[in-house]
Amino acid sequence: MNCLICTTSFSESLSWQRLFFLKQQEVICEKCKRKFEKAKDKEHEKDWIGTVYEGALDSLTSIYDYNEWMKQVYQQYKFQHDVELAKIFVEDFRVLQQENELIVPIPLHEEKLKERTFPQVDQLLIEAKVPFTHVLRKTTNSTQVNKSKKERMESEINFKVSTCVQNQSILLVDDLYTTGTTLRHAAFVLKQAGAQNVRAITLIRA
């Protein structure tokens, strides 16, 4: 096996988990793997207290810290369109197979999707074999990139709920948590549409 990131060849040590197919085959070498850092537990609600979005998101989990290494790898995935890199994070998302909540990835606008050729959030779930449902639709092709924190937090909601979510518990999935605007917008419209509980998980916490 050659490492998906550094291309050097490596061999995986055999374990019982591997033997009984409880664990996926490793796709990156130990050295590249060690460069990822788990996300630190950071406060996320403070900035939103007193706004209409206070309490929209019931909880947040992030898996990795946005260190230089992650920036580099994620850049190659998202902007150089290296779809296969989604396999690196299979183990992180596989646990969601057991969730009872409705798993909802943050969608891309149709035009953006054509441009990117693949939905980078869905792809993480597809590789991990996690079933998901699209209940949100993006109404404009705007992006939060190149906006200041204030501009982001005051930007208009551009999500619509496209199916009934009355009394549902929802787990939102996104790639990157920066200010949390995207997730709060999504949670807000979902709650308005009658969702009971909205949690979120992101691959990266900036």
Partner: peptide
């Protein structure tokens, strides 16, 4: 690498070597 491409709406191949 083969993937489901949203641009050409079908299975599409891409090259990782010179990406």
């Amino acid at each position: 690498t083969v993937f489901q491409c949203a641009k050409c709406d079908g299975p599409c191949r891409y090259c990782r070597h010179c990406i």
